[in-house]
Structure formats: C-alpha cells, structure tokens
C-alpha cells in the first residue's frame, strides 16, 4: 500500500464526505434539511481548507478557511433559513425526475467527471490531487440538482453548492487562488444571495409561490 501522508488522507476523506453530501442533497425532499446539508457541506469544506492551510502553512489559506466557515457554514444558511421562514415555503420539495433516476444520472456524472479529471490530476504536484475529480463531480451534481428541482430556493442551494465544488477544486488542487480573487468571489456570492433574497420576495408577491413552474410562460412558440 502506498504511504500517503495523513493530511492527504484527511483531505480525501473530506472530499469524499462533500461528495456524499452532494448526493444527499440531491435525494433530499425537504427544504430545511437541504439547507442544513448545505451548511454541513460548507463546514466540511472549511475543515478541508483548514487541513490544507495547516499543512502548507500559507496564511491566505487560513483566511479563506475562515471566510468559508463564516460565509458558507453560517451566514448563507442563516440567510436561507430566514428566507424560508419569512416566505413560509412549504416544506416538501417535489423533484421533477424521481429520485432513483436522478441518482443514477448522478452516478454517471461522477464517473464522467472522474474520467475527465484523471489525466489532469495526474499532473498535479499537490498531494491531494484526486480531489479535482470530486470537485468536478460536485459541480456537476449541483448542476443536476438545479435542473431537476422546481422550487426557486432549491435552485439557489444548488447554485451555492456548485460554488462549494469550485472552491474545493481551488483549494485542494492548487492550494487556493490568489487572495484578491478569492475575496472577489466571496463578495460576488454574498451579493448574489442578497439579490436573490430580494428577488424571492418579488417572485412571491407576483406568483404567490416560489414554485418556478409558474414561470414557464416565456417560450418561443
């Protein structure tokens, strides 16, 4: 057996947990649980970033780990919970495609992502290079979730989860993007969620529901 260092094993473990959480989000029917899973994913992301930071000793990674904890594990889930409460979203989320089918598509996506990332991760100097495939898979699964769900809020969680996947790719494969860029990305995500919050209220006022199948009128016929 290869003697992979402990920290690389830890990163692999966290990456695997993030992937698992992505799948559970895909299977989750309830909005509240979905947000909790998202928060958990953010927290796992924080842990993996922290492990990378401790191991490489790069100070900007500590910052981005802290940013992840504050933003993705606490602030964003809190905002989302508030929105759900204020908008009184019904707790049941109806998926468009049934869950086992979604899962099977998910598995296929994971395989594709792993295959796409394989030649690239072999070139990486970073030790936890296998995570690139997982990150891509998380992005793809989030994408799938956005396609198959009807509630606006679920789509947003999907969008944020996609961002988690991207962040995982940035930290584990390249030990983090330059600080300016990371700050910019975090700012964009935060502003995006705030704008969406405003947006939810507008949608609810217009449609009396956050179910986006009301919003299928614009078509080319």
């Amino acid at each position: 057996m290869n003697a992979t260092p402990l920290f690389a094993q830890l990163i692999n473990l966290f990456a695997a947990v993030i992937l698992l959480l992505s799948f559970s989000m895909l299977a989750q029917r309830r909005v509240i649980q979905l947000i909790n899973l998202f928060a958990l994913q953010g927290f796992t992301l924080f842990l993996s970033t922290l492990v990378v930071a401790v191991n490489t000793g790069q100070s900007h990674l500590y910052w981005s780990a802290g940013l992840t904890l504050a933003l993705k594990a606490m602030l964003l889930p809190w905002i989302l919970h508030r929105l759900v409460r204020q908008l009184q979203v019904k707790s049941e989320v109806e998926p468009l495609v049934n869950i086992p089918t979604t899962m099977l598509i998910g598995i296929v996506l994971v395989m594709i992502s792993f295959n796409v990332a394989l030649p690239i991760s072999q070139l990486s100097s970073a030790i936890a290079r296998g995570t690139l495939g997982i990150a891509l898979a998380v992005v793809m699964l989030a994408f799938l979730m956005m396609i198959t769900r009807r509630k606006a809020i679920t789509q947003v969680v999907g969008f944020l989860s996609m961002e988690n996947g991207l962040f995982l790719a940035a930290t584990s494969a390249t030990y983090g993007m330059p600080m300016v860029v990371e700050l910019g990305i975090a700012l964009d995500v935060l502003v995006g969620v705030i704008i969406l919050g405003v947006f939810f209220f507008q949608i609810r006022d217009q449609f009396d529901s956050l179910d986006i199948h009301h919003m299928e009128r614009l078509k080319d016929n």
């Binding site: 692999n12 992937l19 698992l20 598995i107 994971v110 296998g130 495939g133 997982i134």
Partner: peptide
C-alpha cells in the same frame, strides 16, 4: 449508489 461511490472513490483517490 453509496456502494458504487465507494468503489469510484477507491479507484480515483486511493
């Protein structure tokens, strides 16, 4: 699904 994931993770990461 979890079993397949385990297998895939085994193949990719380990």
């Amino acid at each position: 699904l979890l079993a397949v994931l385990g297998l895939l993770v085994r193949l990719l990461l380990e």
